[in-house]
Amino acid sequence: MNFQEIKNRLKSRSIGIAGCGGLGSNAAVALARIGIGKLVIADFDKIEESNLNRQYFFYDQIGKYKAEALKENISKINPSVKVEAHTITLSPKEIVELYKDADIIIEAFDKAEMKEMIAETVLDSFPDKPLVCGVGLAGWGGNELIKVERHENLYIVGDLTNETGENDPPLAPRVGIVSNMMANVVLEILLGKDK
């Protein structure tokens, strides 16, 4: 498939992204670059300087709401992508409302309890909708440990074991790998297997 054919197939597709931090901002940009039709992004938070070690924002955006700033950045990369940005704390009710029409949902939260909440909500409310989760991305190195595990419509991407903490922070390279692998899983679902 050439790139024009790929773009033609992606332009009618909508992806929900829950969280605009390290995983969400990078996965969103990857999908925007290749011409996804629509992104529905959501995050409650504002950009802090400490986020810039991995998240797709710029120094002059510190203090802005992440969802709005990400929308702005995507429009500079590929203005043909429709972006619906929500500054909101996602609960099960909002997840169902915002993502009911999405072809695929990307889980890009930070906290384990939020990851559990969205997985439970999506598997319960939309059992046929693919959900791609990022699990295990702390620290550096260990490229060979990062993988994709499939449980029917639930895809888990990451090393599955390394939780972030004071001495195992999330850093651009590993967060970038996991988020781009998540975007790559989305493509494989939408376009079919290539490799």
Binding site: L23, E113, K115, V135, G136, H151, N162, E163, T164, P170
Partner: peptide, 10 residues
């Protein structure tokens, strides 16, 4: 049975 651990980081 599938048991999937959710751990923090994102």
């Amino acid at each position: 049975v599938e048991i999937i651990h959710m751990i923090s980081g994102g």
